[in-house]
């Protein structure tokens, strides 16, 4: 009896190993590597997830690293698709084809009870620098401003730093939260808090501030009048291989566009997308 059970177990194990080896070798198609911006990463992952439903054999690997890593990987050909959440400089563009997925907005959020509804970019900068410390300095009621930021390396922090702070630093005692959702909840529970989140995650839990008089919306992001925005780019070198091209075609087709829209990436109607 015991001998028999052992034999059966052995046979099952052998079959599993052989099957595994078979699939590993005949996994079929070429593996597509997508490397780059951590902000584009969730959108790319979503696209891949949906793509795999209709293309079960596709092997696509999405990695972070940052926009600069994405650009470099695409140029060197170590990745099939590089991703970037910043415009390419002219010398970076060489040999690369850009596919613009759309524009992503960054929303400055305050508590719903806060009476301030608009800030200039300069006021915003001074608040995050720690030069403006009370809401009554920017037309609100008396209350010490509690600044909430994202952790180092976050794509949202990156774009906020570049578009708002420039070369100046966010004050060192700002509270750090590790996700968009955590920033939102922190702002929701503190009437004097201010934070920034991705437009895709905006909800009625918090109030979005107008920046220089422009409120963030699909329209103002699309026509470029809302200042805090950045492009999401796919970068491909030369002629992509067959599997990569198939994926890119799908992304630009109706199904891919639907996913992008669900992720609240706004198609720009301001700049020409240079396909």
């Amino acid at each position: 009896m015991k001998g028999k059970t052992k034999k059966i177990i052995l046979i099952i194990v052998v079959i599993l190993v052989l099957l595994g080896a078979y699939y590993a070798i005949n996994g079929g198609s070429h593996k597509i590597e997508i490397v780059g911006s951590t902000s584009v990463q969730p959108v790319a992952e979503k696209l891949v997830e949906k793509y795999k439903v209709s293309h079960p054999n596709a092997q696509i690997n999405v990695q972070g690293g940052g926009s600069s890593v994405g650009i470099k990987s695409a140029q060197q050909g170590t990745a099939d698709i590089g991703t970037s959440s910043k415009e390419l400089k002219d010398n970076e563009k060489q040999g690369l084809t850009e596919i613009n997925l759309g524009q992503d907005g960054v929303v400055v959020a305050v508590n719903n009870k806060n009476s301030v509804s608009s800030l200039s970019k300069d006021q915003l900068k001074q608040i995050f620098q720690g030069k403006i410390t009370n809401w009554n300095q920017v037309g609100g009621s008396d209350g010490k401003i509690n600044v909430i930021r994202r952790e180092d390396g976050s794509g949202t922090l990156d774009v906020f730093q570049k578009l708002v702070m420039g070369d100046d630093k966010i004050k060192s005692d700002a509270v750090i939260q590790s996700s968009t959702e955590a920033v939102k909840q922190s702002v929701k529970q503190d009437p004097n808090a201010i934070g920034f989140i991705s437009y895709a995650h905006m909800s009625s839990d918090v109030k979005a501030l107008s920046i220089d008089g422009v409120a963030p919306s699909d329209d103002t992001i699309a026509d470029g009048s809302y200042a805090l925005q950045r492009p999401f780019l796919f970068l491909v070198k030369g002629t992509p291989n067959k599997d990569t091209q198939e994926f890119l075609d799908w992304v630009q087709g109706p199904e891919g566009q639907k996913v992008i829209k669900e992720e609240k990436i706004v198609k720009s109607n301001n700049k020409t997308s240079n396909k």
């Binding site: 951590t38 940052g66 890593v69 952790e151 180092d152």
Partner: peptide, 9 residues
């Protein structure tokens, strides 16, 4: 560790 591991190089 947890905050920054996702981005660090």
């Amino acid at each position: 560790i947890a905050l920054e591991m996702g981005y660090a190089t």
